Simulated scan of single mutants.
Amino acid sequence: MRRLFPVTDLTAADDRGEWSLDALADAYAYPDTDGSWLRANMVSTLDGAAQHDGRSQPISCASDMRIFGTLRGLADVVVAGAETVRLEGYRPARAREAFAARRAAAGQGPAPAVAVVSGSLDLDFSLPLFVSPLVPTLLLTGAGAPPDRIAAARRAGAEVVIAGEGSRVDPARAVRELADRGHRRLLTEGGPRLLGQFVAAGVLDEMCLTLAPMLTAGDAQRIAGGPSVAVPERFALASVLEEAGFLFSRYRRI
């Protein structure tokens, strides 16, 4: 792996060109801010596909997964849409020794919480994500969510967070509710509809995008879908890493 931007004489790689997890954690550290910081992590092919056969794994690579793990290792909470949780087979976040000292110094628990966004709460609450996480899973839903599903979620050990009216979750309110619970370093892994909602609400601070050197054609979703913004929001390039033709870029809101 090599750094393409910003250009520097310093290197974080070893003699084989591999970056340590500590070096990646330094490169992707959250900014020092008094408020919350929402970053997204997504992968896309050259022709804009965010998935293949309904999943992101076929367009990923080993280095992409190392960065994926690093971003999780730095976050207070991982936010994902219900459909992504179902399709990707989400499990509880793990405590990793490589990030233990860094998390302890930042006042974080051993692993990030997972927050699932769902208006209907149509989820299998017998899965490990709900019954055996290190940190209780949060469910972000609307005030009109079915009471029986709220009760089932709570019986499974999940924390239900009301973050909208009716069956809709308000993206800005979801960020505030998580921050009020001490989750200021937020990471969303999609899916595309949820990311599109965060973009449209103007609450996304940072975009971590892996560009895969692949073409898929077809009608796969882009990394963000749903409502459009009236005026495209400009982000500034913060860094670019490269390995085996994959580009690992990071953009921040201007």
Rank of each mutant, 00 (worst) to 15 (best):
L211T: 10
G218R: 04
P147Q: 10
P213C: 10
P112M: 14
V203R: 00
V203P: 06
D34G: 15
L10H: 10
A236T: 13
G35D: 12
A98V: 12
E242C: 09
G69P: 00
R102W: 08
L186A: 06
L204K: 03
L215T: 04
T210Y: 13
S132E: 15
L195V: 12
L74V: 08
A104Q: 12
E88C: 08
I223L: 14
D180R: 15
D170E: 14
E243T: 07
A95T: 01
S120L: 07
M65T: 04
A236C: 10
R3P: 00
R91Q: 12
A153V: 03
L10G: 00
R154S: 02
A106N: 03
M207Y: 14
P227S: 09
A105H: 01
A152E: 13
A230C: 00
E97I: 08
S118P: 09
A179I: 04
R184M: 05
M1Y: 11
V117I: 15
G54H: 11
V169C: 06
A172F: 01
D15Q: 02
G144C: 08
Y251H: 14
C208I: 07
P6Q: 07
G109P: 00
P147M: 09
V116N: 00
P6N: 05
M214C: 11
L10F: 07
T70K: 01
P112I: 13
M65K: 14
D53C: 04
R103E: 11
A75L: 09
A238E: 15
R193H: 14
E243V: 06
R16L: 11
D47K: 02
I59T: 02
V78Q: 05
A27I: 07
T11E: 04
L211N: 03
R168D: 06
R94G: 00
V203G: 00
S20Y: 09
G191I: 15
G107V: 08
T84G: 00
R193Y: 12
R176E: 10
D148V: 08
A156L: 02
V131P: 00
G182P: 15
V169K: 09
D219C: 01
R91T: 13
V77P: 06
A100V: 03
A156F: 02
F235W: 14
A49G: 14
F125H: 03
E97W: 11
A13G: 01
G81W: 10
T70A: 11
G182R: 01
L134K: 06
M65S: 07
V199N: 01
L195D: 09
F99C: 04
V169I: 10
L178M: 05
G48P: 09
R96A: 00
V135F: 14
T70S: 07
P232Q: 12
R55Q: 15
R234H: 10
L74T: 02
R66V: 03
A230S: 13
